[in-house]
Each structure stands twice: as structure tokens, then as C-alpha cells.
């Protein structure tokens, strides 16, 4: 521990710049949750499987539990807190609420960001494309049916 030095880390999160002082072994997930108090990003597995910790890095969904905070300086980080526009929910969030795609809600932030990134890249995904895109996001509650419906509803709008 003595050899490890704290460094200043500058993170651009949801279009805000944050400076933190941390040891390099801090993951992006820890930096977001513990330093920036952005606790919408969740940890469920801590090993890259479940997608609860998903954030967007320059628009692409990545696992913040397998990302070092020091290594993403200069990149644009989007968390679930950054999706909503003012008082209104983002349409993806709204679709999840309207279609009962949320039960306990633990997987929801990661799932919503993954869906958001998918729709950005492909506004009219097929059901198979949707299912594949969210396959790195584990939900224990819903059986995914309503999540797929929610995303599909937006895909149809995208047509």
C-alpha cells in the first residue's frame, strides 16, 4: 500500500468535470459511487457479467467494475443520472416505466443505458437484436419479456 500513490483523476461525467484524488486501484464504479455519489450505477457481480454497473464511455456501454478510473480520463462518461432531461424522464426510461420493465429495479439503470446505446446505434432493432444487445445484462425479476417489449416500443417509434 505504501508504494501506491494517490493521484488526481479528472473525470467527465454527464457533461460535468469532476476531480478526485484516489489510488489507481479505484475502479470507475467505485469512483462514481463513492466519490461522486452517483449511486445509480450498481454493483451486482463485480466481474463483468451482469451489466448492473454499465455506463457509457464515449457512447458505448462498458462495465465500470472492470474499468480503472485513472484510465478513462478525457473520455465522456454517461451514467443513468445523466439520461434524464430536466424534470422529464428520457423516452427510454419512460418506456421502461410504462411497460412494467422494472420490478426490483436493481438491474434497471444498466439495462436502460444498454437499451439507450442500442437505440442510438440502431433505431429499429429486431427482437433478436434487442435480446442479444441486452444479454450482458442480467435481470433476476422480470424474465425480460417486458424489458424487450419496452425497447421494442421505441424501436417501432424509430421506424
Amino acid at each position: 500500500m505504501s508504494e501506491m500513490k494517490k493521484t488526481a483523476i479528472t473525470l467527465n461525467v454527464n457533461n460535468e468535470t469532476h476531480d478526485i484524488i484516489a489510488y489507481p486501484n479505484k475502479t470507475l464504479l467505485e469512483a462514481l459511487r463513492d466519490d461522486l455519489r452517483l449511486t445509480g450505477t450498481k454493483e451486482s457481480c463485480g466481474e463483468g457479467v451482469c451489466g448492473s454497473c454499465t455506463v457509457l464511455l464515449d457512447g458505448a456501454p462498458v462495465r465500470s467494475c472492470l474499468t480503472l478510473a485513472v484510465a478513462v480520463q478525457g473520455k465522456k462518461i454517461t451514467t443513468i443520472e445523466g439520461l434524464r432531461v430536466g424534470e422529464k424522464l428520457h423516452p427510454v426510461q419512460e418506456a421502461f416505466v410504462n411497460h412494467h420493465a422494472i420490478q426490483c429495479g436493481f438491474c434497471s439503470p444498466g439495462m436502460i443505458l444498454t437499451a439507450y446505446a442500442l437505440l442510438k446505434e440502431n433505431p429499429t432493432p429486431t427482437e433478436t437484436e434487442i435480446r442479444r444487445a441486452i444479454s450482458g445484462n442480467i435481470c433476476r425479476c422480470t424474465g425480460y419479456a417486458k424489458i424487450v417489449e419496452a425497447i421494442k416500443s421505441l424501436a417501432e417509434e424509430g421506424k
Binding site: 463483468g48 457479467v49 454499465t54 456501454p61 462498458v62 444498454t114 450482458g136
Partner: peptide, 9 residues
């Protein structure tokens, strides 16, 4: 390989 989000990294 892995899942779509992992292959982003």
C-alpha cells in the same frame, strides 16, 4: 465471445 458489452472493451 463474452457478451456485447464486454466485447466493447
Amino acid at each position: 465471445a463474452a457478451s456485447p458489452a464486454v466485447t466493447n472493451m
